[in-house]
Design a protein around this nucleic acid. Structure first.
Length: 355
DNA sequence: AAGGCGGGGAC
DNA sequence: GTCCCAGCCTT
């Protein structure tokens, strides 16, 4: 299969044109200041399914708060989540800290430079493993992400469905054969820069591409048809009533989410799913579930929030309680001024303005 | 292999 | 609205 795909492909010529382009035009990014494996690691985790422009401010802030593996290992998980607030996919942050603690405990704080140990760390999958090994340790390991699959699907005119696991393995094999042995770090980063700036998903600017002479899709005029990717199925909708509960002491009540699953360990304003009960029974349901008597006073907002796999419809209500403390483990009474200390998902940040 | 897991920007 | 982004984990 690989032999067939790479037949008559000028690997060394491709490498040379790509690397020359990269040395001249590579993007000036904060995690490219040096090859510190910790910085590379943090950046690669943040960049999973996330755009460069989104990551940059988070990267600066995170490195300022947690400059070394030791700082991150010793940090409170809530502080790590606060630094991740708004970035999404929060298990990345929790897995990263878990893995860093493992590095401190098992490897004396030194990030392992061999594939087996590195790939065994929590949150370090095939892509991130290859990225760290190549970028930080100059090893010729493939790091196949969406960019790589898009670029090589066009260059080599591969029409397999990139949403399938076996297709990713094909691209890992292809990249392992094409990657520069002289400068694997620059090669992998060059493919990513190419995918981000030239070989874009829509309307790629092939006229400016340093390797357009090597691109089979461009030669055939089918670059816009590649890569092939099957559709994701659409989200399910869930209705909620969300309560902004205030008491007489200028305090509000917030809730910590479960330690597993969606938005794990983040905080929110208490939510009642309307899948089982109707809106009329919210006060009773809340008393039964949380042991707290509240009175709904007015409607504040209606928020629609879309996740990758579901949609929340939140009917935001203001509520009053006579209580000054709570008994349910999930709930917490806080001063209004302290709300900024807790990590909230974006969906609930939209409610803060009503406090 | 399929589904859970965020949020934002480009079109 | 759709797509998809420097993906990984669990089942």
């Amino acid at each position: 299969m690989i032999n067939h795909v790479l037949q008559k492909f000028n690997i060394s010529g491709f490498q040379q044109e790509l690397l020359e382009w990269y040395y001249q035009y590579k993007r000036d990014l904060p995690w490219r200041e040096n090859q510190d494996p910790y910085r590379v690691w943090v950046s690669e985790i943040m960049l999973q399914q996330t755009k460069v422009d989104t990551v940059i401010p988070y990267f600066h802030n995170f490195l300022e708060k947690f400059p070394t593996v030791h700082d991150l290992a010793e940090a409170d998980e809530q502080d790590v989540l606060k630094a991740w607030e708004g970035l999404g996919y929060y298990s990345r942050a929790r897995n990263l800290q878990h893995a860093v603690r493992e590095v401190v405990a098992e490897y004396d704080g030194k990030i392992p430079d061999n594939p087996k140990q590195l790939g065994a760390l929590k949150g370090v999958g095939p892509y991130t493993k290859g990225a760290i090994l190549s970028i930080a340790f100059n090893q010729p390991e493939p790091a196949v992400d969406g960019n790589v699959m898009r670029v090589f699907s066009r260059v080599l005119m591969i029409d397999d469905d990139i949403a399938q696991a076996k297709t990713k393995k094909l691209f890992e094999s292809v990249t392992g054969n094409i990657i520069s042995k002289e400068d694997p770090s620059s090669f992998n980063q060059a493919i990513m820069d190419l995918g981000a700036t030239i070989c874009t998903p829509k309307s790629p600017t092939c006229m400016l591409c340093p390797v357009n002479e090597y691109c089979r899709a461009y030669a055939e005029g089918v670059e816009e048809q590649l890569p092939i990717k099957s559709k994701a199925k659409k989200q399910k909708s869930i209705p909620y009533v969300t309560l902004l509960i205030k008491n007489a002491d200028d305090q509000i009540i917030i809730e910590k989410r479960p330690e597993q699953g969606l938005l794990a360990n983040l905080w929110q304003f208490p939510m009642i799913p309307l899948t089982d009960i109707s809106k009329d029974h919210v006060e009773n349901w809340f008393r039964a579930e949380y042991g707290l008597t509240v009175k709904l006073t007015k409607e504040l907002d209606h928020i629609k929030h879309t996740f990758s796999h579901l949609i929340w419809h939140m009917d935001v209500m203001e509520a009053e309680t006579q209580e000054t403390d709570v008994h349910d483990q999930r709930l917490k009474v806080i001063d209004k001024a302290d709300v900024e200390q807790y990590p909230f998902p974006v969906s609930h940040q939209k409610i803060k303005k009503y406090i």
